[in-house]
Amino acid sequence: MSNAVAHAEAHGHAVPHDALQHHFETMQQQKEASTLGMWVFLLTEVLFFGGLFFAYLLYRVWYFDAFAEASRTLDISLGAFNTAVLIGSSLTMALAVRSAQTNQRSATVRWLISTIVLGCVFLGVKVIEYADKFEHHHVPGPNFVSESVWAAQEQIFFSLYFTMTGLHALHMIVGVGVMSVVTWMAAKGRFDEHYYTPVEMTGLYWHFVDLVWIYLFPLLYLVERHN
């Protein structure tokens, strides 16, 4: 265990940075603590979605035909468009972090705002998709309507579809909220090349949200499209 630990042995600065909290000795220590904290948080997120993915996997194997049929009711072009949007937002996020690292305040703000906009586009498309599902009575539960012989098992697919994409969207909403605060902080000039941890942490979170979608897209939209 101990050899896996990078020790914070940096020396203290003569003048402490404004952003240094009292209980840390150095900025280095503070930053490493935040980074580790964020990664541990993402670790919890992996297991959070992991349980859901297993449920999906199990029922997909059991009820493949129902899943294939239900999946075909999703709009693949909207799904692919959203995938592109989200990957694009990951790019702008990475560039925002880079701008923060290199102390380019206005570029940081610009990239952050682009990320927020792309995130909102994604959510907007999601709203369109959800509205369509409501209209077609594809929401599982008492109002579910399906002509299919696999109607019952299709409900499992849609239950998982809504739970998975709903939780994903919830994560995005939280991300957009956090990012708005970080953008405001960046605009106020709170960050410099020694302290940009909030930008970086938001970035990690946002990339994780992207990562979940990278799996959700093929699993939900592309179950069986070739016939």
Partner: peptide, 10 residues
Amino acid sequence: APAADPTKKN
């Protein structure tokens, strides 16, 4: 009931 093999995907 559904005794499929999850390791084998269709």
